[in-house]
Design a protein around this nucleic acid. Structure first.
Length: 498
RNA sequence: CGGGGCGUAGCGCAGUUGGUAGCGCAUCUGGUUUGGGACCAGAGGGCCGCUGGUUCGAGUCCAGUCGCCCCGACCA
């Protein structure tokens, strides 16, 4: 509680407060990204109306604008999954406890974060039900019923669903108790075929995140310590945030025969032998929205990549009294963009000054702003302002559609290039342990180093620098382990993570 | 789960030694405005997170509890 030495001091303080409150810019601005990225992130999520806190801990409401972005993400991925021969289905939210217990590693890994239903109405349940943290168990059970012969394979099913993991620390999108995702589950006749599926889906994720979300990645295999509980191997796409922390953005798992043995997914092969199927699973979640926000946003708010932006362009008429001509022109421009497939919005609300609207759409991250006023009408021009570079340009009316289309492409590329620069600048080679610690703790970057493969050294990364192996680096091992100096086994990316 | 901070109008906050709850923004009404967050006049809006305690009296003191933010141990 603040105290004041005198009534005068108190009054002075009141005046200062009043003056501050009159300063609108101070009031409405978000925390600068460079100053405090955590606070900036929260400010932007709320002010851009992506999500809001709900009364339930760790559970956010995804607001229409954030959900529209998710729908665009879903649409692109869903189309690609289907193109590759997957079909959608839906499995239950509740999983009997006994199912979850069948795969030992799986239980152990998920036990600390499973939410349980123990009552139905007023009666205790005979067997408690887990709210799915992931669906390998229930899907494995069903697959065992559906697979009899090698002719039933492969099964390639995807589901769009919500899952619940009881997290201790939560943040909108980046880590929430309940989140939305897709989980693909496939079963194959041979390990080779399953491994192909795993790598193919990793590539799908990589292409999607880099091309559509404009977020550059490092990708590769997880260490055994970091893999999915119950998997043989996990492959990941990892994005690096501007604060040097890695964000696991999607995973693809080679489950080997672990789940098919636990759930008895077996089939009669053409050689008359009964064999266990080889299964995979892969997922990407609403966490990726957090990555988009973090990776591209700036002090003015979001910067959304055109390919997934709910609104790609906004048209703002600059009207004075009785400016029906300007309003008509704004409508015309909106229609013209709509006709060429641009997701466009017209903002002809009265009572908001243009400057106010500019700020709002900048906060929302709309890639392109179209301004049209009497001056433009007179000159036969249109004013365009890019969200990514803030560049303002005047173009001839006749070049309108073509220019907008070109700009969509350019903005997408610029966002990727800028993020790529961050990834490259913040990925540093470490040739000694001291260097590694300094890269993580002082430079706040991701380290690229040689590792012997031992759990001892991996644990030391965590203990000494709070960093984990994000994934293996495909590049050649060119030295000894930075930690113990024994012969190197893997090049790895090591970073702190979200 | 530990350490720190914060819960008062939709949002941001003030509320001094306990004594009838305030400011700015936003909202609503009317008017003037509109090329980077307009102005004037008027109006509405509160279980002071929740529960209990101390007190004649609690936003204020005490205890508990829930939630949010930040920093550390576990995870998509």
């Amino acid at each position: 509680m603040q105290t004041y030495n005198s009534a005068t001091e108190y009054k002075e303080r009141l005046e200062i407060m009043a003056n501050q409150n009159n300063n609108k810019k101070t009031l409405d601005a978000v925390t600068p990204k460079s100053e405090d990225i955590s606070r900036w992130y929260t400010d932007v999520v709320l002010k851009a109306k992506m999500a809001d806190y709900s009364p339930v801990k760790g559970c956010m409401v995804i607001r229409p604008y954030g959900y529209a972005l998710w729908e665009n993400i879903q649409q692109i991925l869903d189309k690609e999954f289907k193109r590759l021969g997957h079909v959608n289905a839906y499995f239950p939210l509740f999983i009997p406890e006994s199912f979850l217990l069948k795969e030992a590693e799986h239980v152990e890994g998920f036990a600390p974060e499973v939410a349980w239903v123990t009552k139905g109405g007023n009666d205790d349940l005979e067997e408690k039900l887990a709210i799915r943290p992931t669906s390998e168990a229930i899907i494995g059970h069903m697959y065992s019923k559906w697979v009899e012969s090698y002719r039933d394979l492969p099964i390639k099913i995807n589901q769009w669903a919500n899952v619940v993991r009881w997290e201790k620390v939560t943040r909108p999108f980046l880590r929430t108790t309940e989140f939305l995702w897709q989980e693909g589950h496939t079963a194959h006749r041979t390990h080779e075929e399953a491994k192909e599926e795993v790598m193919q889906m990793l590539q799908v994720y990589r292409d999607f995140v880099e091309n559509d979300l404009a977020i550059p990645l490092v990708t590769g295999e997880k260490s055994q310590k970091e893999k999915f509980a119950g998997a043989l191997n996990t492959y990941t796409i990892e994005a690096l945030m501007p604060d040097g922390q890695a964000l696991q953005s999607g995973t693809s798992h080679d489950l080997g025969q672990n789940f098919s043995k636990a759930f008895d997914i077996n089939f009669l092969d053409s050689d008359g032998q009964r064999k266990f199927a080889w299964t995979t699973s892969w997922g990407i979640s609403t966490r990726i929205i957090g990555a988009v926000i973090m990776a591209h946003g700036d002090d003015k708010g979001l910067r959304l990549p055109p390919r997934v932006a709910p609104t790609q362009a906004v048209v703002i008429p600059i009207v004075y009294k009785d400016s029906t001509a300007v309003n008509d022109k704004a409508k015309e421009l909106t229609t013209r963009l709509s006709k060429i497939g641009i997701r466009v919005q017209l903002d002809d609300r009265e009572g908001f000054k243009p400057g106010w609207k500019y700020s709002e759409y900048e906060m929302m991250g709309v890639p392109l702003r179209v301004e049209i006023g009497q001056k433009d009408l007179d000159k036969g021009q249109v004013c365009l302002v890019r969200r990514d570079t803030s560049e303002k340009m005047f173009i001839a009316d006749s070049e309108f559609e073509a220019t907008v289309e070109k700009l969509m492409q350019e903005i997408q590329e610029t966002l990727f290039k800028q993020a790529k620069e961050i990834l490259e600048n913040k990925t540093l080679r470490a040739s000694s342990f001291e260097e590694f610690v300094s890269i993580i703790k002082e430079k706040r970057c991701m380290a690229d180093l040689v590792w012997c493969g031992s759990a001892e050294c991996e644990n030391k990364f965590k203990a000494e620098a709070g960093a984990t192996i994000r994934c293996f680096n495909e590049n050649a091992v060119d030295g000894n382990c930075v930690c113990c100096n024994n012969p190197g086994k893997h090049r790895v990316f090591v970073a702190r993570s979200y």
